[in-house]
């Protein structure tokens, strides 16, 4: 009986949270298209989320390109097909690895910070202060983060694609001694523009999801510093799981639509 009521309570709480998230989405959509448009705040977020994240994206994508080439090269050498390493890396990086790894890195670096900043502002009445001045906190704080994320995630994914392939070139050609011309030839033959564009579209959708989820948890944080910490943890977990589910759905749709 007790378990049953606890379960019902959990279900009710989950439904309430979903309703709250739907209302939040509506508010963000409404305030995105209302004046004033604050370009300065979007630029600031482009710098924070984008420019400041370049080093970590370079490092992670280079590592993945190199490690993937090392493992794949080993496997392909059994069929004397190491020359395909670059093409395989470029295809998987552009379609899946670059958008997913870039997004996970950005969740760790910026998503948690987004939640913590908004949560702290909530608990110290800074959001209330904005409201009393007739400045809508969603328009001032959330909308610039969402717009910047939708722009920045694909850009960083593009960078990750290039750097990942460079890492693959270094391992395959310079370390393992595979012919450079053959490596590039296979790379160009097998990698299509739609491989790259599908990854960039995924990255934009993931940017939208991550910024919305992380802002939502921060905006509705309760319970002082502990509440802010809990909100940041929930935001990271929810957005990480959320983007993997969204990735599967998008991959399924794109295979049917783009890669027939």
């Amino acid at each position: 009986m007790k378990d049953e009521s606890r379960l019902l309570k959990k279900v009710r709480e989950a439904l309430e949270k979903m309703g709250l998230f739907a209302l939040f989405l509506g508010e963000v959509a409404k305030w995105t298209f209302r004046k004033p448009f604050r370009a300065r705040l979007v630029t600031e977020q482009l710098e924070t989320i984008g420019v400041m994240s370049v080093p970590i994206i370079l490092l992670s994508s280079l590592s993945i390109g190199m490690i993937f080439s090392l493992q794949l090269g080993n496997f392909l050498s059994m069929f004397r097909a190491e020359i395909l390493t670059g093409a395989a890396v470029a295809k998987t990086m552009s379609r899946e690895l670059a958008p997913v790894v870039t997004t996970l890195m950005l969740i760790a670096k910026n998503g948690s910070a987004m939640t913590a900043e908004l949560g702290t502002m909530r608990s110290t009445e800074q959001l209330d202060a904005m409201e009393t001045m007739s400045v809508n906190p969603i328009q001032y704080l959330v909308v610039p983060r969402v717009i910047a994320s939708v722009i920045v995630f694909p850009v960083l994914t593009g960078i990750a694609n290039i750097v990942g392939v460079l890492g693959s070139y270094f391992i395959t050609v310079m370390v393992r001694g595979v012919d450079a011309a053959g490596f590039l030839d296979q790379l160009y033959s097998y990698t299509r523009p739609r491989d790259i564009s599908s990854g960039l579209i995924k990255a934009a959708v993931m940017g939208l999801l991550v910024s919305l989820i992380c802002s939502f948890y921060g905006y509705h944080a309760r319970g002082g510093s502990r509440g802010v910490g809990d909100a940041a943890t929930r935001a990271v977990v929810t957005s990480s799981v959320g983007i993997l589910i969204a990735d599967y759905i998008m991959a399924d749709i794109m295979i049917k639509v783009l890669f027939r």
Partner: peptide, 8 residues
Amino acid sequence: FQDAALFD
């Protein structure tokens, strides 16, 4: 506000 609510 009670605690000023300055933007930190």
